[in-house]
Design a protein around this nucleic acid. Sequence first.
DNA 1: CCAATAAAAGACAAAATAGTCTTTTATTAT
DNA 2: ATAATAAAAGACTATTTTGTCTTTTATTGG
Lengths: 143, 143
Amino acid sequence: MFSKTCEYAIRALIFIAQQSKDDVRVGVKEIAKGIGSPEHFIAKILQELSRKGLVLSLKGPTGGFYLDNKTLKCTLADIVKAVDGDKLFLGCGLGLEYCSDARPCPVHHEFKKIRADIYKTLQSIRLGEFHAQLEESIGFLKR
Amino acid sequence: MFSKTCEYAIRALIFIAQQSKDDVRVGVKEIAKGIGSPEHFIAKILQELSRKGLVLSLKGPTGGFYLDNKTLKCTLADIVKAVDGDKLFLGCGLGLEYCSDARPCPVHHEFKKIRADIYKTLQSIRLGEFHAQLEESIGFLKR
DNA sequence: CCAATAAAAGACAAAATAGTCTTTTATTAT
DNA sequence: ATAATAAAAGACTATTTTGTCTTTTATTGG
């Protein structure tokens, strides 16, 4: 469904949303441990997400990653789009370049519904939902 | 959503279902042209599908690939499972190994519904549907 | 039987994705 | 100021996926 990079990205951002209350920023080491990902790899991914404005960061001591009111409004769809592009939402399920309502592949209509459902679901989940939740309801993020 | 290999596999099997009426078998060259795939690559994929019993083949002149009453009952879900495995249907959306109803990831319940929908849809489409259709209703298979 | 045909098999190559490591830059607290 | 800290940047390696090529095996029609 998603690339590994995208899975890590979503898990990392949810983790940051959960952990970064007030002015507490979260370091790469902590994130990697928290989501069970390779440290340097998630660092690279977060750099890209930061460049694209999906997460904020600060260098130096007390530095780390965090989210503000704007980025907490990001949806999972925004993250997926930023990392994997929008082919999951818009592309043909069979990989055909010119598949469309006007020139549909044999399973176009069935897949259209699936893609719309996926998009709707991912669009409905915001990072803010995970912010400063009670420990009990957080849900685990590492394997 | 699917691997490239799986996209080609589905397109090829639909093509074979469409083209192989009665005792007419379809050659690799024809299939590759028909679905717009690399010839040797789809040959390799079809060998694997043949080994797994999702398509039948015959060597020599007048040889090629074809489907019988049993294989025409195969669903798209069967094909996807054979090629990409069942992680799309069963795996955690965030790639977590131990995600389950009892120990759910933060988006487990939303994803569960999506996965079930995908499975249901793929399960509902059989290769037989595409067999010997009228040209008009076939739907194109190459880009 | 034999030549032509077409799939099977498997070695190889290219490209994309995933992951690692080292150096640089910015920030903070002493 | 400066030492310590942590992200940014980018080069590098490994693995997986995708794609190509050549040889072998099976089948058919003459």
